[in-house]
């Protein structure tokens, strides 16, 4: 690790100003992700600005929904009784992520800002368009068992690793951002850009913008939501495929739905065609099978990750069945 300076910011505003004013500065929340980058040569900040003790860790409940502080730890949010009862998809996605020790350290803000686990990206001796534009993507012809089956670009086939982001997409969450020019809100759907020419662009944040909170509307679907994560081992592994779903059933038929996939694309991936397949129909075998099929209709897998298509189809079906059984 190269040497760097460290300051504990005294307020969110001060933190944003410190990083905005210094291109070589970076925030640190729990440190569970950025310390790996520092050790592996993926980042080289001259200054770390600690935002882990700014008091941004509240979990607040209002009529409209939830407001989660960006500094809240994954474990504390997952354990919250209101979150567990009213936003099951959120509690489950958080609890399915990382390990108990990591969840005790990791902040929600840091979770949203984590970067792909593509092994070629993480190891600087490989070429990688995401690290060094124009050098190529060894995953396409190499080991891409863990890579994207949806929405990839020619330049990059990496996937986004966050479980939290997938749950937030199914909940229409909004990310509250503080910059030197004030606050703004970004819908989670716009927080992660679509694949463009430059795979280095991973979020809508500008340098120095601090995530201060996440707003989660309770809406008609949050309570009837679920999360299913398929992993290579029983626990403590990133998703091969995950599914977050939230379904509103009124008088026996689906009035609205959100279905988002994780582990399949460079961003959490909403599948509108799968949502549409449910609308106006009972949440039952026929509609569920159609939704599962629609979820993977646009899949364009690589030779080494075709298996993900079947897993995604099955996972969508299972999570919808589980929501149906709960009623």
């Amino acid at each position: 690790m190269r040497p760097f300076g460290y300051v504990r910011a005294e307020s969110p505003e001060a933190a944003a100003a410190l990083v905005a004013g210094d291109l070589s500065a970076a925030f640190v929340g729990g440190g569970t992700e950025i310390l790996n980058w520092l050790k592996d040569g993926l980042a080289d900040p001259a200054l770390l600005v600690d935002v882990g003790r700014l008091g941004l860790d509240a979990v607040e409940v209002s009529d409209g929904g939830l407001r989660l502080g960006s500094g809240a730890r994954m474990s504390d949010v997952a354990r919250d009784r209101h979150v567990r009862a009213e936003f099951p998809v959120l509690a489950r996605a958080l609890e399915a992520g990382a390990s108990p020790q990591l969840r005790n350290m990791a902040t929600l803000g840091g979770n949203l800002l984590q970067r792909t686990r593509c092994a070629y990206f993480r190891e600087p001796s490989f070429p990688c368009n995401k690290r060094v534009p124009g050098t190529g993507c060894p995953a396409r012809d190499g080991d891409h068992a863990m890579h994207a089956i949806l929405g990839a670009s020619d330049a990059c086939v990496a996937v986004h690793p966050s479980d939290l982001a997938v749950a937030l997409l199914a909940l229409d969450a909004r990310v509250e951002v503080l910059g030197v020019h004030g606050r703004r809100e970004v819908a989670i759907e716009d927080f992660y850009p679509h694949a463009g020419d430059d795979p280095r662009r991973e979020t809508a944040l500008r340098h120095g913008e601090l995530v201060v909170g996440i707003g989660v509307p309770s809406g008609p679907r949050a309570r009837t939501s679920g999360y299913l994560k398929v992993r290579e081992r029983g626990s403590f592994a990133f998703a091969l495929v995950s599914v977050a779903a939230a379904v509103e059933v009124v008088e026996g038929v689906v009035r609205s739905a959100r279905i988002a996939l994780g582990g399949v694309a460079h961003r959490p991936w909403r599948v509108r065609a799968a949502e549409d397949a449910l609308l106006g129909r009972p949440l039952a075998d026929g509609s569920v099978a159609d939704a599962a099929e629609a979820a993977v209709r646009d899949a364009d897998p690589l030779p080494g990750n075709r298996y993900k298509v079947a897993i995604a189809r099955g996972a969508v079906r299972r999570v919808l069945e589980e929501i149906g059984e709960r009623g």
Binding site: V28, L48, L102, N104
Partner: peptide
Amino acid sequence: DRRIYSCTTLAVMQE
């Protein structure tokens, strides 16, 4: 009293 990994945090962060 919370379990964490000591390798992914800086000593200075635990002041």
